[in-house]
Deep mutational scan, measured.
Amino acid sequence: MASQGTKRSYEQMETDGERQNATEIRASVGKMIGGIGRFYIQMCTELKLSDYEGRLIQNSLTIERMVLSAFDERRNKYLEEHPSAGKDPKKTGGPIYRRVNGKWMRELILYDKEEIRRIWRQANNGDDATAGLTHMMIWHSNLNDATYQRTRALVRTGMDPRMCSLMQGSTLPRRSGAAGAAVKGVGTMVMELVRMIKRGINDRNFWRGENGRKTRIAYERMCNILKGKFQTAAQKAMMDQVRESRNPGNAEFEDLTFLARSALILRGSVAHKSCLPACVYGPAVASGYDFEREGYSLVGIDPFRLLQNSQVYSLIRPNENPAHKSQLVWMACHSAAFEDLRVLSFIKGTKVLPRGKLSTRGVQIASNENMETMESSTLELRSRYWAIRTRSGGNTNQQRASAGQISIQPTFSVQRNLPFDRTTIMAAFNGNTEGRTSDMRTEIIRMMESARPEDVSFQGRGVFELSDEKAASPIVPSFDMSNEGSYFFGDNAEEYDN
């Protein structure tokens, strides 16, 4: 783990906690998980779902989305002020799938948001429990990260689609708070800032007046979040320049895209947490497990152990491969979309394939898809080993990566060399080191050039047997250095459309 220093740990961010010791953190995270579980059980009762239907990941996603929508204050306010045809701002819903006479049927349900809020609060001892809501947002974000390569979004903001390893959390809503900021990748933060800068260039009043003052505060806050992700002084200094700019424009845009590229080699610290679907927490609570009393951590053995003992089902389209669908969801559960496939294969105990080789589309089923041909199958979400999630980018030494994705962002704290394609990355730096950030740029390029592919990161860190909950005997895996390590390699994943 990167030293926490003055930073709060993510469990504290996750639970809005002030400084807590490890036991208190485990208890408050457990409380959050228990609340999600209780809410899910109650919703299944309301909807009269069978046990099997309640364990269907598509039903879980609909129920999670309903509660997130019920608590989305800004959108609710907007919907009330701008009524649109056929949208009731006070209601929320989605597809629920039921097994009827041996076939899967889709039923569109509609609930009062007020009623959903009441059920959620009741499951969370009367609190709004925003930490639990954020947790579900991060699960949705991790699922998107594993399912889609955001080529269009990258290109629109002047970045290269091969930089997708920097895009963790790119679909997280803005209201996801400190826990959300911690899991956002460098590219995601750059993209958010670039969008602001572009608006400022096109709209003279963007930075002016009372609204402009708020915009400015948001801009500086985002700059500080991004600065905190960088691990070298030169990158941090460049972020200070971007933040202090009187009138952010093209120079800042250039600096930010430069920094994003540099992060492929001088990786930023991005938190990883295993956020599971509500249909995993519900049955665990129903079986009598007391998360608050037992304590829970999002970055240790607990999620692995929970998945070892969970039964989750998914709808499967006619030509999809259930094992591939399982891999997709497994990666999402562990926030591992940008991790090295060699490491993932070792931990999972079966070969993890790149996205383009998977015969599976996303987990969600569109409303126009034919239910007649839908089957369902068990998702295999178990693992051979477990490993500690990392909050750091690993040290800054790398190795060759593949054509589709030119770097990785480690999820697990496991000893290995970190793949990246130096030639491709360095070719993108057209040696432009003039301007006010020239000395920093020169320094950053120097550090990137001296990074050695064969150097090892996370020295001495290994994986653990599932029986080793105290992480007492690390097993340090050895990897084939020459092997392909990137998930979005030469990829044809669908595009994420909101």
Score class of each variant (00 low, 15 high):
residue 449 E to R: 06
residue 331 M to F: 11
residue 5 G to R: 15
residue 10 Y to V: 05
residue 23 T to A: 12
residue 487 Y to L: 02
residue 453 P to N: 08
residue 455 D to T: 13
residue 376 S to V: 01
residue 425 I to H: 06
residue 239 M to A: 07
residue 79 L to F: 10
residue 149 Q to N: 08
residue 186 V to L: 14
residue 137 M to S: 03
residue 107 E to C: 11
residue 294 E to N: 15
residue 74 R to V: 02
residue 473 S to N: 13
residue 408 I to F: 00
residue 418 L to T: 14
residue 58 Q to K: 09
residue 89 P to V: 06
residue 105 M to Q: 11
residue 58 Q to V: 08
residue 331 M to A: 07
residue 82 H to I: 03
residue 202 N to C: 08
residue 310 S to W: 03
residue 462 G to Q: 02
residue 261 R to E: 08
residue 361 R to V: 02
residue 424 T to A: 14
residue 305 R to W: 11
residue 165 S to E: 02
residue 166 L to G: 12
residue 482 S to K: 08
residue 460 G to R: 15
residue 112 D to K: 03
residue 168 Q to W: 05
residue 378 T to Q: 09
residue 434 E to P: 15
residue 68 L to S: 06
residue 38 R to E: 09
residue 364 Q to S: 07
residue 249 G to K: 07
residue 475 I to T: 12
residue 360 T to N: 11
residue 6 T to E: 01
residue 32 M to C: 04
residue 81 E to W: 06
residue 304 F to T: 01
residue 218 A to G: 08
residue 51 D to Y: 09
residue 340 D to Q: 06
residue 14 E to F: 12
residue 249 G to A: 12
residue 472 A to I: 05
residue 23 T to Y: 14
residue 293 R to I: 05
residue 84 S to N: 15
residue 357 K to I: 01
residue 187 G to D: 08
residue 457 S to H: 09
residue 152 R to N: 08
residue 363 V to K: 06
residue 150 R to N: 03
residue 57 I to Q: 03
residue 445 I to H: 04
residue 125 N to G: 13
residue 13 M to N: 00
residue 158 G to Y: 07
residue 331 M to N: 06
residue 169 G to A: 12
residue 347 I to V: 15
residue 173 P to Y: 03
residue 380 E to Y: 09
residue 15 T to Q: 01
residue 161 P to F: 05
residue 436 R to G: 10
residue 241 Q to W: 04
residue 337 A to V: 11
residue 144 N to V: 05
residue 322 P to E: 08
residue 237 A to I: 02
residue 48 K to N: 07
residue 119 I to S: 10
residue 223 C to E: 09
residue 240 D to C: 11
residue 167 M to V: 10
residue 224 N to Y: 13
residue 71 F to H: 08
residue 197 I to Q: 06
residue 365 I to S: 14
residue 323 A to G: 15
residue 320 E to N: 07
residue 490 G to C: 06
residue 344 L to R: 01
residue 143 L to D: 02
residue 431 G to Q: 05
residue 422 R to S: 12
residue 313 Y to D: 04
residue 392 S to P: 00
residue 8 R to A: 00
residue 365 I to H: 11
residue 419 P to N: 00
residue 369 E to R: 06
residue 300 G to R: 07
residue 415 Q to H: 11
residue 268 G to A: 13
residue 308 Q to I: 13
residue 63 I to M: 12
residue 97 Y to W: 14
residue 149 Q to V: 07
residue 74 R to E: 06
residue 189 M to E: 01
residue 319 N to A: 03
residue 355 R to P: 00
residue 262 S to Y: 12
residue 219 Y to V: 08
residue 23 T to R: 12
residue 245 S to P: 09
residue 86 G to F: 15
residue 83 P to V: 14
residue 105 M to G: 15
residue 273 K to P: 06
residue 356 G to Y: 12
residue 444 I to T: 13
residue 484 E to N: 15
residue 208 R to L: 04
residue 246 R to C: 06
residue 165 S to N: 15
residue 187 G to A: 14
residue 165 S to I: 01
residue 206 F to P: 03
residue 408 I to M: 10
residue 376 S to A: 13
residue 234 A to W: 04
residue 114 E to A: 08
residue 2 A to G: 10
residue 362 G to K: 07
residue 243 R to A: 13
residue 32 M to N: 04
residue 64 E to R: 05
residue 452 R to W: 04
residue 228 G to S: 10
residue 85 A to T: 13
residue 485 G to E: 13
residue 242 V to P: 00
residue 396 T to G: 15
residue 151 T to L: 05
residue 430 N to Q: 12
residue 83 P to F: 04
residue 267 R to V: 04
residue 91 K to T: 04
residue 430 N to L: 13
residue 130 T to K: 13
residue 126 G to K: 09
residue 456 V to R: 10
residue 126 G to E: 10
residue 186 V to Q: 07
residue 156 R to L: 06
residue 30 G to Q: 07
residue 163 M to T: 14
residue 308 Q to E: 07
residue 340 D to N: 11
residue 90 K to M: 02
residue 470 K to V: 06
residue 239 M to E: 02
residue 285 V to A: 14
residue 483 N to Y: 14
residue 224 N to L: 09
residue 349 G to N: 06
residue 98 R to S: 13
residue 457 S to A: 15
residue 23 T to I: 10
residue 167 M to R: 05
residue 86 G to C: 05
residue 309 N to H: 09
residue 49 L to K: 01
residue 239 M to T: 15
residue 242 V to E: 10
residue 438 S to W: 09
residue 361 R to E: 02
residue 478 S to K: 12
residue 362 G to N: 05
residue 345 S to K: 04
residue 370 N to T: 10
residue 188 T to M: 11
residue 430 N to W: 07
residue 76 N to H: 14
residue 284 A to M: 00
residue 202 N to P: 01
residue 338 F to Q: 01
residue 198 K to M: 06
residue 181 A to Q: 14
residue 363 V to E: 01
residue 357 K to P: 00
residue 349 G to E: 11
residue 110 L to I: 15
residue 25 I to Y: 06
residue 195 R to A: 02
residue 382 R to M: 03
residue 176 S to R: 00
residue 242 V to S: 01
residue 35 G to C: 10
residue 361 R to S: 11
residue 42 Q to C: 04
residue 142 N to D: 11
residue 89 P to L: 04
residue 260 A to Q: 01
residue 38 R to M: 15
residue 262 S to H: 08
residue 478 S to A: 01
residue 281 Y to I: 08
